[in-house]
Amino acid sequence: MKTKLLRFTTFLFIIFLMVSCASDEVLSADNKIISFTVTKGQLSKQFDITETSISGKVDTDFELNDISLTVVLAEGATISPDPATIKSITGPFSLTVTAANGDQKVYKIEINREPGAGNSLLEFNINASNFLTNATIDEKTGIISKRLPEFVDLENLTVDLKISKYASITPDPKTIKDYSSPVSFTVKSESGLEKVYQVKFEYMNVSKFRSCTETNAWKWFGGDNRITAPDLLPYDRNVATGQVIIVDKDLVPSSFNIHLFEGFSYDEDRQEYNKPVELKLIIRDVNLKILATTTTSVSGQFSGGFIPFDLQKLNLFLQANKTYIFYWYLVDGEKLGISSSSTGNTKDGSGFCFNTGYDGESRISRNTNIEDLKVLYKHPWHFNIELEGKE
């Protein structure tokens, strides 16, 4: 019995010693931030830490929104507010670190982005009554220039500008409508650097005429009344012709001429039609979207040569080095059953007269229309055309 009592007393003594040791343990007073890192996407930067502050700058392209903070603390310390809740830095703020023993330290955080130095006018777009183009910007001289069609009202222009990121511009382009005389803009960088641009617009008034007349081939154009033609029904098809147009300078076209080898006639008995006919011209962009259409009448006495389409009222603007498709056909060609020949050139070459040709063929029996895109195909010839307008 005495032995059991001794053992119990020893056990109580050991417990007493453990409690005494625990109560004598000193809690840490370390309330330091060990490291502080800001991350945005693939960009990341770690900042130097002083006794009670963290400060520094990030590069211009390191925006301080949608960020994450990685803060490493001394062992046992806690921080408020939780860095995980901070997603943007818009000015100075504070973080409070509490040591294990309750001692607190306040860190003042001041991190800024380097101000941008860009002060360029990057784009100058013009939009006036369904007319859209961009002006040429000379960064060396600060001159913004463009030759514009005479149908554009320079006293009532709407423009859309793009400037360097973080820069500002004066006056506000939205307040300027009159460009009939030079207009100046000042672009100021975020860091305070200024650059002056002057806008100078002129009308396109230089006449230009292009002609492609070299001929060594003739293609069917119009309807077909043949009874014995293979795989064809009489009065069933209509054949069109087209040509890619690419100009080396902006052009406002006033006339487009196509060339037919002879007058219209019935192929079955070679009888001449000798009545007026109507041709239709469709102008498409590189994506085959229709930009404009027009028609022209051909006299019953026509026996071959160039046939003009008047484009003046269409207010067309052909931009330099862009692709346009001019596509023409005989109106009611299937029903009329008469045909002529589009003349062309099969030789290789370069420049305006050697762009891609097109053709199309519709059939009543196939329920296709000559204006359907599915009947429009590239053709290896370069067809004879003339184009007139102003640059």
Rank of each mutant, 00 (worst) to 15 (best):
P234T: 03
L288V: 03
L316P: 10
V331M: 11
I290K: 02
E278I: 14
E262P: 00
G337T: 05
D332L: 02
F306R: 01
T294A: 11
L311H: 07
K249V: 12
N345I: 09
F221M: 08
R270E: 13
K275C: 10
L291K: 13
G242F: 00
I290H: 00
Y266H: 14
L314H: 05
V244E: 15
Y235M: 08
P253I: 05
L232Q: 12
K219Y: 12
K335Y: 12
L232I: 02
I338N: 10
D269V: 04
I245G: 06
R270D: 13
G242S: 01
K275G: 11
N287G: 09
D236F: 06
D250H: 04
G344P: 03
S254D: 11
K335D: 14
G305P: 06
V277M: 03
Y327K: 10
S265I: 09
Y327T: 10
G305K: 06
H259D: 08
Q312E: 14
W220E: 11
V252D: 06
I283C: 08
Y235H: 10
Y266M: 08
P230E: 09
Y327V: 09
T294L: 10
V239W: 15
A292H: 04
F306L: 04
I258G: 02
Q271P: 03
Y329V: 03
L232G: 02
P230C: 06
S265L: 15
D248V: 10
L314Y: 05
T293S: 13
F326Y: 14
S265R: 15
N274T: 13
V247I: 14
L233C: 02
L232R: 14
W218F: 12
S297K: 13
S303W: 00
V286K: 15
Y329E: 06
S297F: 03
L232T: 08
D310M: 02
D310R: 02
L233H: 07
Q301W: 03
T228E: 05
E268H: 05
T323P: 12
